[in-house]
């Protein structure tokens, strides 16, 4: 962890349109939670629709995508990363710092609103509430690591990330059961299902989901470090 890099990354993430979008998504979710609670009272089906289909399917990955790529891809794109790289700071430290900031921001804008929305729609801070919060936390962390890696690998990180979320996680995993083994969202849900098996369906066993989540997060951070060490800034000519 490097406090200067953390400060620069956090400021970069929270300003401008990115900050607005980050604030808007959880705001919409919380507003919806309030609305459904007032209109329908406490209803398990609506709870699952909002917290599962809307929140875990859409809001959490989108926030992690904005944050994970924004934590490094913007600087690589415009070239400002050169001011971090021309320093005697280990590349692993740059990646770990940026990842920790990205995770913190994602949890703040995705997991915390999940907790509040779950309390609103379930009426209590019970196991279902905590299960959804755990699912958002776990998948938020893994998404951040993967999207940060994408940001180091490609200039089209946002598009690739969006395609993964929209095509793979939303479409393919719905059609092919086996595809869920490679879905970050389902790893989070499978871990959270241990807490509330009645509310959340596990598509993988706890050990498998945990191993995959930890392994992919670690590998993504390691690979991002390797790529950052070899980042070429050859200029225009």
């Amino acid at each position: 962890m490097n406090s200067t890099i953390a400060r620069l990354t956090a400021t970069g993430l929270l300003r401008g349109w990115r900050g607005l979008l980050l604030a808007l998504l959880p705001f919409v979710m919380l507003a919806l939670a309030l609305l459904v609670r007032m209109a329908f009272g406490i209803d398990p089906e609506i709870t699952s629709g909002l917290l599962d289909t809307f929140n875990l399917d859409t809001v959490v990955p989108l926030i992690a995508l904005i944050v994970g790529t924004g934590a490094i891809a913007t600087e690589i794109d415009d070239g400002a990363i050169v001011y971090l790289l021309t320093k005697p700071v280990a590349r692993g430290r740059i990646i770990v710092t940026k990842l920790l900031v990205a995770i913190t921001v994602t949890l703040l804008f995705a997991a915390v609103p999940t907790l509040i929305a779950a309390i609103v729609v379930t009426g209590a801070a019970g196991t279902v509430t905590w299960a959804y919060t755990v699912a958002a936390t776990v998948s938020g962390i893994v998404y951040c690591a993967v999207f940060l890696l994408l940001g180091v690998l490609s200039r089209r990180a946002v598009i690739i990330g969006l395609m993964y979320v929209m095509l793979w996680e939303m479409l393919v995993t719905g059609l092919v059961d086996g595809a869920r083994a490679l879905s970050i969202q389902h790893w989070g849900q499978s871990i959270a299902a241990e807490l509330a098996p009645d509310a959340i369906t596990a598509s993988l066993s706890l050990p498998v989901a945990t191993t995959l989540a930890v392994l992919v997060t670690g590998m993504a951070a390691w690979f991002a470090t390797q790529r950052l060490r070899s980042l070429t800034l050859a200029g225009d000519s």
């Binding site: 620069l8 970069g12 415009d78 070239g79 400002a80 050169v82 001011y83 800034l233 200029g235 225009d236």
Partner: peptide
């Protein structure tokens, strides 16, 4: 001192 303009 890089040629590119971008800074923080």
């Amino acid at each position: 001192v890089p040629e590119r303009e971008a800074m923080y």
